[in-house]
Structure formats: structure tokens, C-alpha cells
Simulated assay, not measured.
Amino acid sequence: MSKRLPWRRWLARSALAFILVPLALMLAFRFVPVPVTPLMLIRAVQGEGLQKDWVPLESIAPALAHAVIAAEDNRFCEQSLGFDFRALHGEIEDWWDGERPRGASTITMQTAKNLFLWPGRDPVRKVIEAWLTPQIALLWPKQRVMEVYLNIVEFGPGIYGAEAASRAFFNKPANALTRREAARLAAVLPSPLNWSAARPSGYVLRRASIIERRMGQLGPLLDCAR
């Protein structure tokens, strides 16, 4: 019995740390800028460098928030727990029918992943992401979720956040982005290491055009990002 107690104590402490450490960081990052993320460190070790410049949401053109909602998560402003349950239901139906899932990742889910986790699609990471997402959704207002997301998301090799991306690709601050430039930045998010907002392929330009058109159609679904 005495030999088992240290293991039980270690497991209990590990479980407590698993719960409390991310929670403490979420509470801190509700108010202070995020200094670095696991993905930034991983990419830096891989030799991609690290360009980032934290700016408040008010210093980012609203068009970029609208563009990422149009591209990544149309119902972002309506979600209460950070999940798009309609999209998740569609994912389950696709899986049941033997089809390839289309993806149901929300901006809040991507923020949780970018803030705390590593890249990849392994089940362990997805489970932890699902655990962290509702905590962020409950602790942060929508504007803070968007602010953190736009400051830490990867827009290109070694380029993180709206300000660094805007200066690297368009030679201007993020508050001067046009709708078209914002749409091009949002268009590369699914594959920022392979697609470029500065030298967009025909596919990226077509995707950006669709995003820009959708931005004008979402109406009240953009209310929380205005």
C-alpha cells in the first residue's frame, strides 16, 4: 500500500496541474498579451524564425476579423461554448456515411489549439482542445478571443499575427488593411506554410474572392467583430 501512495499522489498532482495551469494562463491571457506559443517555438526550432508584434484589436482593420469569420467560422458570434454544433453534427453524419469529414473547427477551438497545443490531428490533441475550448469561451468575451486569435495565428513561415503579416506581405500596419488584403490573409490560413498572401496562387485568389463576397453577405453574423 505504501508503495502505491506516491504514484497516486503523483497522478493526483498531475491531474490537478493539468486542470489548474491552463486555467491560470487563460485568466492571465484574458488581460495580458500572449508572449509566445508552442507552435511558435516549434517552428523556430525548425528554422523558420519568429516575427510577431502584438497589437490591440482596435489597431487591426475590422475587415480582417470579418474575413476570418467568413473563411473559418461563420457562426462565431452566435456560439456560447466555442463549438459549432451544427457543423459537428454534419461531421458525424459524413463519418457515418463513410465520407471524408469537412472540418468543424471554430475560431475559439483554433485559439485554444494555437495557445496551448502542438500542430497535428492526433486524437489526444483533439481531446485536449475540446476540453480547453469551452473554458476560453466562458472566460473571455468574443472580442478577446478574436484579439488573441489574430495576434497568434500563423500567416506564413515564421510570421504570426495580423501586424507582422500585414507588414511582411503588404508593407503596411494591420489597421490599414483593405477588404481584399484581409481576404487574402484569411484565404491562406488553412495552409500558411504552402500558400502565400503576398504571392497568391490562382486558387488562393479565387478563395479570397469568395471570402470577400461572403463578408458582404454575413450581416448580423459579424456583429461581435464590428
Rank of each mutant, 00 (worst) to 15 (best):
R4A: 14
P6D: 14
R8P: 00
R8M: 01
L11M: 08
A24G: 07
L25C: 02
L27V: 08
R30W: 15
V34Q: 10
V36H: 12
T37R: 05
V45M: 07
Q46M: 03
E48R: 07
G49D: 09
Q51W: 12
D53F: 13
D53L: 13
V55D: 09
V55S: 08
V55T: 14
S59F: 14
L64W: 09
V68L: 10
I69H: 09
I69R: 10
A71F: 00
A71P: 00
E78T: 06
Q79C: 13
S80R: 11
G82A: 13
G82V: 08
D84W: 02
F85H: 14
F85L: 11
L88K: 03
I92G: 15
E93S: 15
D94C: 05
D94W: 09
D97F: 07
D97I: 00
D97K: 12
R100G: 13
A104H: 08
S105E: 15
M109T: 02
Q110D: 02
W118V: 01
P119R: 06
D122N: 12
E129T: 13
A130V: 12
W131P: 09
L132K: 00
A137R: 04
W140S: 06
P141M: 01
K142R: 00
Q143R: 05
L150Q: 07
I152R: 12
V153S: 10
E154K: 04
F155A: 03
P157H: 07
Y160W: 07
A168M: 07
A168S: 11
K172D: 07
R179P: 00
R179K: 00
R180F: 15
A183S: 06
A187V: 00
V188F: 14
S191F: 11
P192I: 12
A197V: 06
G202L: 15
V204I: 10
I210C: 13
I211V: 15
E212G: 02
R214D: 00
L218T: 11
L218F: 15
L222Q: 09
D223I: 02
A225C: 02
R226A: 01
